[in-house]
Design a protein around this nucleic acid. Sequence first.
DNA 1: TGATATACTCAAGGTTGTAAATTATCAGCA
DNA 2: TGCTGATAATTTACAACCTTGAGTATATCA
Lengths: 167, 167
Amino acid sequence: MTQLHRESQPRGERSAIEEIERSIMQISWLAQRQFMQLLDEDRFHMTLPQFYTLLHLEQSNEVCKMSDLADATHQSAASLTGVVDRLRDKQLLDRIRDEKDRRQVMVTVTTQGRELISEIKQARREQMQMALAHMAESEVEALILLLDRMLAGMARVLERAENGRLA
Amino acid sequence: MTQLHRESQPRGERSAIEEIERSIMQISWLAQRQFMQLLDEDRFHMTLPQFYTLLHLEQSNEVCKMSDLADATHQSAASLTGVVDRLRDKQLLDRIRDEKDRRQVMVTVTTQGRELISEIKQARREQMQMALAHMAESEVEALILLLDRMLAGMARVLERAENGRLA
DNA sequence: TGATATACTCAAGGTTGTAAATTATCAGCA
DNA sequence: TGCTGATAATTTACAACCTTGAGTATATCA
């Protein structure tokens, strides 16, 4: 899957985009597979959507509406219901119906959930350290900044697509 | 081969590894969601595993054994059989039984498949261009190099994990 | 009060994932 | 030749997830 054939032409904007495109495709696929392997271990036994859902809850540090959680994790409300069900079965989060507006269901991470997230992050960090072990510290610093810049753009594209779909 | 010092970092509370970890997590998730949306459009109607499987075939430019294809795309042989079935139903690839070793099934992409991959790549490029539109060319150049460096490390981690599993 | 909108849940269908069992083929050897 | 074990691909069984569309409960507005 790692077949690079670079164009011999001087790199203009277009082929730079192509390089990024290729890198992102491979990174997404590899990162996903790598992380799935980790989450699938007996000590965690989670799926990707379950993890990202719980992660957002843990980061938001407060209770969270189902609809907000669906927006934040880019899942449909119907999908999220199933994900939350399974997380609740494992006692990693709690459902609370809002007393003011009883249509809404608030979700909050349990202590158990926080601990699991913390363990997974630690394991993930070790995996990442292995992947970055051959890079200089300055390179890693630069990478962080550039990734953040790219992330901002990607988030915009995604939002635009989802808003467009509703129109 | 600089070992990253987890303890002595001057960037607030977080270490460099933690920042990378957070960025990669978000990028993986966003990129995956973004790409899924694209592939799900009526004109493509593909899934992620289907795309990456077809992409590898198109890049390898030759016929490919099922087992090699499974290795390259990090899918199990059982999963791959189903994926290839669906791609064949759409006439994007062909199955050919090898005459020398009749146990083996060779897979090859059709002209139709090549055309679809090309269209998807074009659409993807447009998405990526929007995501990177706000970055300077020099930033994009730097990002390419650093992503490649990281990819190399990630591929190693993944291989090690999969080999370890077989042992 | 009744109409409409919002938020969530449920059910069905499709894809992917794993593990274990099966089929077909090959290769070595007496 | 016939036996045996290894290999390649598939099949089967089952679970998880996502999506769509329908349905339910609640809130808001006329």
